[in-house]
Simulated scan of single mutants.
Amino acid sequence: MKRREFLKTTGFSLMGMAALCLGCGASTAAPVTANATASNTEGANATMKTTKKILITYFSWSGNTKAVAEEIHKQIGGELVEIVPETAYPTSYNATVDKGKQEQQANARPAVKTKIPDFAQYDIVFLGYPNWWGSYPMPVATFIESLDWQAKTVAPFFTHGGGGVQRCQSDLAKLLPHTSFAPYLALSGSSAKNASKDVAQWLSKMSL
């Protein structure tokens, strides 16, 4: 795929540099670090209450998906953990675009530092990542395949640059064929850092 076609079809935005696939306008859709330490297990600023154990985990390159994850954590609490690759992606946008493409074409499984030794305790896992070449960044697949997802409910959230969800949800469902999914949230990178209302509306659709 030529770079211009890539920008058009997946929404890569040099202005936003938003998690490698960002864009304009927010949308929601239904139907659905080494040994990373969780932050604020009670969610002191949480605006919603639930008795279920919640994990919010995410992969973020530019910070947009991280911002959404932090907003979810602010509203509902739980534990917040970043998916961190063993080898960091380049700081250069173009170099990261190329590396992401190569990894996806090779169906690679880049090593990740993040470990969740007590994963079995969680009932609901919020899982977020940017749209890279229409799907998930490959470290997300590494992370997913390192854990037992039986009896989990997964609430996916994605950031993009105008390309929308594309295969982000469908490819995730293939990785987790026996997992229950809550409605997903898709946000453009440009709206990711001001998404409190979108997150609140999304959370209200779930039976928490």
Rank of each mutant, 00 (worst) to 15 (best):
E42H: 12
P130A: 07
E86F: 03
P183K: 13
A69G: 09
W61V: 04
S27N: 12
W202R: 09
Y184F: 15
T57S: 05
T87S: 15
M206R: 07
V154C: 04
K193T: 11
P110I: 07
K152W: 09
F126I: 02
N35Q: 14
G162E: 02
N94V: 13
L185D: 10
G77I: 00
Y89P: 05
Q102Y: 04
W61N: 06
K197E: 14
V68W: 01
P139W: 03
T28D: 08
L80N: 10
Q169F: 13
F12Y: 05
S196F: 05
E71T: 15
K8P: 02
V81M: 07
Y122C: 10
G189A: 06
K113V: 00
K66A: 14
L22M: 03
K49L: 14
V81E: 02
V140S: 01
L187S: 05
V125N: 04
Q169Y: 12
A29C: 06
A95I: 04
S191W: 01
G77F: 00
V81Q: 08
P177G: 14
A19G: 15
Q105F: 11
H73Y: 11
K8D: 13
Y136D: 06
Y58Q: 09
Q121W: 04
E42V: 12
L14V: 00
G25K: 02
V32L: 13
I56W: 03
F59S: 07
S13I: 01
E42F: 14
A69K: 00
A30V: 10
L203A: 07
P85G: 09
Y122K: 06
L20W: 06
V68R: 04
A151E: 08
T96H: 01
A67P: 01
V32D: 10
H178L: 13
P117V: 01
D118S: 11
E42T: 14
R3H: 00
K193L: 06
L208Q: 08
A151T: 06
A120W: 02
N107M: 01
V32S: 11
P139M: 05
A34L: 13
T91N: 11
A195G: 11
G16F: 05
V97A: 12
T179Q: 10
M15D: 05
A44Y: 02
T50K: 07
S135N: 04
A38F: 02
